[in-house]
C-alpha cells in the first residue's frame, strides 16, 4: 500500500509518499495514523495531533474509522483550505 502526504503533513514527514507493509492489527485510517505517530520521530511530529488529520481512501474523503482494506493509496493531510 502507498501512503501519500500533503501540505504540512508532507513537510513534517519529509517525503511526499511511501510504500508500506501494514503491520498486523492496523485496520482503519485511525489505526494507521496512531501507528505512524509511534513509528519514528518524523511520524511523531506529523501525527502528534490526530484530530488535525484528514484522509482520503479510494478517491473519497473518509473518517478515522474507515477500513483500509486493500486500498492502493491512503492520503493523509490537514483540513483543506482551497478557494
Amino acid at each position: 500500500m502507498r501512503i501519500a502526504y500533503f501540505a504540512w503533513v508532507r513537510e513534517r514527514m519529509g517525503i511526499a509518499e511511501e510504500a508500506v507493509e501494514l503491520p498486523a492489527g492496523i485496520a482503519t485510517v485511525g489505526d494507521l495514523v496512531r501507528w505512524l505517530a509511534t513509528r519514528d520521530e518524523r511520524g511523531a511530529r506529523a501525527f502528534a495531533e490526530p484530530h488535525r488529520i484528514r484522509a482520503a481512501l479510494g478517491g473519497a474523503m473518509v473518517g478515522a474509522d474507515a477500513v483500509i482494506g486493500d486500498a492502493e493509496e491512503v492520503a493523509l493531510f490537514p483540513p483543506v483550505t482551497g478557494g
Binding site: F6, A75, F77, V80, T81, G82, G83
Partner: peptide, 9 residues
C-alpha cells in the same frame, strides 16, 4: 470548494 476539495494554501 473550501471544505470538500483537496487543496491547501
Amino acid at each position: 470548494l473550501k471544505t470538500d476539495v483537496m487543496l491547501w494554501k
